[in-house]
């Protein structure tokens, strides 16, 4: 006799069909024990496509939900999935923009018995909200807690160890600081490679060059290094530089002088008035 069980929540409905191999005495009266699953269906509200499969699909959903909910409540990074090539897994991951992404590979879906849409589209993908995820989790938890339906199905709820969490953030995240350090050193080295080597003005060299071209370097030496090369460079340039250097200073000195001149002008009318 086929037994059907349904766990329905506002956004998610699970339907299980199966058989009982328990002897009639321990069959639990009017509610026999379902311990052989023949068909499993999962429906989400507002989604046309249904997930239809067997025990693999149910267990895959159970593990993915546990994994996702655990990391969501704890606020820790979810463990990364191994990838399709290693092992096909039901994947449930939080999205940056909110909500969760549920991906079910075609291996878990019953091709023949399901709708035609499943044949064309081997991978089922849903974008579900946190309320929908809660309903999925709650339906699975109710099923796992039900001793008359698949009693061997257990939700493995346990905290992840330090090692697991660390391995979750593994290689890529752990090597990020190292890679950043190495690349920044590389970039800095490359940039510095193209920089010209700064010329250190050595006193004997400049003293030789300066007399050779008297006209041009007249302006440069004071701007380049005012403090270091003064004693040497100034000596040969003394005839030219003082004239250039002194010129601005009188211009500054001139400004106060008109102010002094202007002072008498207001003062001059004052005696006139009285």
């Amino acid at each position: 006799m086929t037994i059907q069980r349904q766990y329905s929540l506002p956004n998610c409905v699970l339907i299980l069909e199966g058989l009982s191999n328990a002897p009639e005495a321990s069959a639990g009266g009017n509610r026999p024990e379902l311990n052989i699953l023949t068909r499993f269906e999962c429906y989400f509200a507002r989604e046309k496509q249904a997930l239809i499969g067997g025990r693999d699909l149910l267990e895959g959903l159970l593990q993915a939900t546990n994994r996702c909910v655990q990391s969501w409540i704890s606020g820790m990074q979810p463990l990364p999935y191994k990838g399709k090539e290693v092992k096909p897994e039901v994947q449930l991951q939080p999205l940056k923009e909110g909500g969760f992404d549920l991906v079910v590979p075609g291996v878990f879906l019953a091709q023949g018995s399901s709708e035609d849409a499943n044949l064309e589209q081997p991978v089922a993908q849903f974008h579900i909200s946190s309320v929908q995820l809660f309903d999925l989790m709650e339906a699975i938890d109710q099923l796992a807690a039900d001793q008359q339906t698949l009693p061997d199905l257990q939700a493995d709820i346990r905290p992840r160890s330090r090692q697991e969490v660390r391995s979750g953030s593994s290689t890529l995240e752990q090597s990020a600081p190292l890679a950043l350090g190495v690349t920044s050193v590389g970039v800095a080295a490359a940039a510095l490679f193209f920089m010209p080597v700064p010329k250190v003005p050595t006193p004997p060299k400049e003293s030789q060059q300066a007399p050779a071209s008297l006209g041009q370097p007249l302006v440069e030496p004071p701007t380049k290094s005012s403090g270091d090369s003064k004693p040497n460079t100034v000596q040969p340039l003394t005839p030219a530089t003082p004239s250039a250097g002194i010129q601005p200073s009188p211009s500054k000195a001139v400004s106060p002088s008109p102010s002094i001149k202007s002072l008498p002008s207001p003062s001059s009318p004052s005696p006139v008035k009285p």
Partner: peptide, 11 residues
């Protein structure tokens, strides 16, 4: 679920 999530990465 809440109890086990509180020790996630701590055990």
């Amino acid at each position: 679920r809440l109890w086990s999530s509180l020790f996630d990465g701590e055990v």
